[in-house]
Computed example of a mutant assay.
Amino acid sequence: CADALEIVRRYGIELPDAARALLETGAGETIKPADERLAGVSTHLIATPQQALEAAADVARAAGITPVLLGDRLEGEARDVGKVLAGVALQVRTHGQPVPPPCVLLSGGETTVTVRGNGRGGRNVEFLLALAIALDAAPGIDAVAGDTDGVDGQEEVAGAFIGPDTLARAWEKGIRPRDSLDNNDGHGFFEALGDALVTGPTLTNVNDFRAILIT
């Protein structure tokens, strides 16, 4: 309550009497971990980012594909993460390291996007577009990325798919991949190619999911 009151005072916010009383008396304070009212409470996580990656790894193994879990907390600029994971994928494809193909690189977490343009974008499509550009049509590498709640950015689109032919198909349509990335227009880019991933609302959220398949 004290923090809220400080904000009210700092910005001169007019509050209804009831709301001000709630803050000034401390009656609106959130329950703290040591509160006796929580003595009989237990918390259980029934879905986590790590569980999502492990489930995907099980599917990969069943298909004879080696899963490589890169972590469930990858963060940073989406386009930078795309470049880095492109380097890892190319190392696998070219040198068979850290494991030989066929394998799938799995990762989770939430990246960020610094908005530079006025396109329709989200962190997963930005990641994929940067990944495709960095891979430069390398053969045998496909990827999917999406937000597990079914909404990437402000669009009712979870994410998208890329493959070795992604850039070529874009150029055939007169779309310049680098321009789309610079304009933060990942959704526009993949929608034009028919490669958007639309799941609808999943009613859950365990951050983002990324899979790069190297064959």
Rank of each mutant, 00 (worst) to 15 (best):
G153Y: 09
V84L: 10
P102L: 11
R93V: 08
G194Y: 09
L85C: 09
L203R: 15
G186L: 00
L167E: 06
G82T: 01
P177A: 07
V198E: 14
D80T: 13
A158N: 04
R93A: 12
A78T: 01
G96L: 05
A160P: 04
G153M: 10
R73E: 15
T202V: 11
R61P: 09
L45P: 02
G82L: 01
G108W: 03
Q154T: 14
T215E: 14
P177R: 06
E110F: 04
P177T: 05
V198C: 12
G26H: 07
G96C: 08
R79G: 00
Y11R: 08
G200M: 10
P49S: 07
K32G: 09
L181P: 03
D72G: 05
T199M: 15
V104N: 01
L106N: 07
F209E: 00
T25Y: 07
L53Q: 01
L203Y: 15
V125H: 00
E77R: 02
E75K: 15
D35W: 11
P33S: 08
A196G: 11
V113G: 01
N207K: 14
G28V: 13
T111N: 00
T48A: 10
L90I: 14
T148R: 08
D149E: 13
H187V: 00
E110R: 04
A89W: 01
I214S: 00
L181V: 01
V206H: 05
A2S: 13
D136F: 07
V113H: 03
A86C: 12
I162T: 08
V8D: 07
L22P: 05
A63H: 14
G122K: 01
E54F: 08
A145D: 03
A52P: 01
L105H: 06
L105T: 02
A138V: 07
W171M: 15
G64W: 07
R169H: 13
I46Q: 12
L106V: 08
T215V: 15
R37L: 11
N183G: 10
E191R: 06
V99R: 10
D136L: 14
A89I: 07
C1T: 10
F161G: 03
R116Q: 08
T199I: 08
A19V: 11
V68E: 12
T204Q: 12
V84G: 00
A160V: 06
G40S: 13
K173A: 12
L90N: 04
A89F: 05
T215A: 14
A47H: 08
A2N: 14
L38A: 12
G194P: 03
L15M: 11
P98L: 13
P100E: 14
H44E: 15
D17C: 06
E77V: 01
N184D: 11
G188R: 02
A47R: 11
H95C: 06
V206W: 03
P139C: 10
P164F: 05
F161R: 11
R123I: 04
F127K: 00
T25A: 04
N118F: 09
A132P: 05
G12A: 08
P102M: 06
D208P: 01
V84M: 05
A89D: 12
A56G: 09
A86I: 02
A211N: 05
V68G: 04
A211R: 07
Q51E: 14
F189H: 02
